[in-house]
């Protein structure tokens, strides 16, 4: 299979299941059978590493290497090297990760939702176009500008997915959401208002002084 076909959501899912490391080995850049498959792969995996780092996973747990099919020795070297790295990092959610389990696994669940979501897929898919030809307005992006756009989506989408994930467990107040998610409560308040505007969340009831919100299931 071409590395360009690796779905970033699968990567998050793998870590969520407790994998300590994941290495993706593919053809060298410029030697792609499908012309730009591994360039696409690089964009996707770079972005996935940024996202994993953002949620608190040590990003070195994910590695992207190049090796041609004739280089058996190199392949062994790469794998051994990675094996050593993972041994040094220890088990997932432990010492070497900024966020520890089980908090990390909850965040990985949100990460999977972000990576499976169309915003991320769509924008990542546009990288080559944005950098070479430009966006719909003809603005050609630098790598830095593109990364900033991606970072923005990473931060916001992760928080939104965390909120939606929590709400799927049952109705919640803004205060309770903020308490359990480590997102500043004034931001949760604004996300909830925005999600109402998008018809993805609604006010269910008011209990005492707490308005409680509920998720509106989205059609496909």
């Amino acid at each position: 299979m071409c590395t360009g076909r690796v779905d970033p959501a699968i990567i998050a899912k793998a870590f969520k299941k407790g994998l300590d490391g994941l290495i993706i080995v593919g053809c060298f850049i410029g030697e792609c059978h499908y012309v730009s498959g591994n360039i696409q792969a690089k964009a996707k995996i770079d972005m996935t590493r940024r996202l994993l780092k953002h949620i608190g996973l040590n990003e070195n747990r994910l590695s992207f290497q190049h090796c041609s099919s004739g280089e058996a020795t190199r392949f062994v070297e790469i794998v051994n090297e990675f094996d050593k790295t993972i041994h040094e990092l220890g088990p997932i959610g432990g010492e070497s990760d900024r966020v520890k389990g089980p908090e990390l696994f909850r965040k990985l669940e949100a990460a999977e939702a972000v990576l499976a979501g169309e915003k991320m897929r769509w924008v990542i898919g546009k990288k080559t176009e944005f950098l070479e030809k430009g966006n719909f307005y003809g603005e050609v992006f630098t790598e830095h500008e593109f990364n900033r756009a991606i970072d923005m989506i990473i931060v916001e989408e992760t928080e939104v997915q965390e909120i939606l994930g929590k709400l799927k467990e049952g109705v919640q107040s803004v205060k309770a959401l903020a308490g359990s998610l480590a997102i500043p409560s004034e931001r949760v308040f604004r996300y909830i208002n925005a999600l109402k505007r998008k018809e993805m969340v609604q006010l269910e009831t008011v209990s005492g002084r707490s308005p409680l919100y509920k998720v509106i299931p989205q059609g496909v």
């Binding site: 107040s173 803004v174 205060k175 903020a178 409560s185 004034e186 949760v188 308040f189 604004r190 909830i192 109402k196 006010l203 008011v206 002084r209 707490s210 308005p211």
Partner: peptide, 12 residues
């Protein structure tokens, strides 16, 4: 939607 809440924590 007209609900008076605190923007700090969403409580009334």
């Amino acid at each position: 939607g007209g609900l008076v809440v605190s923007p700090l924590n969403g409580e009334i």
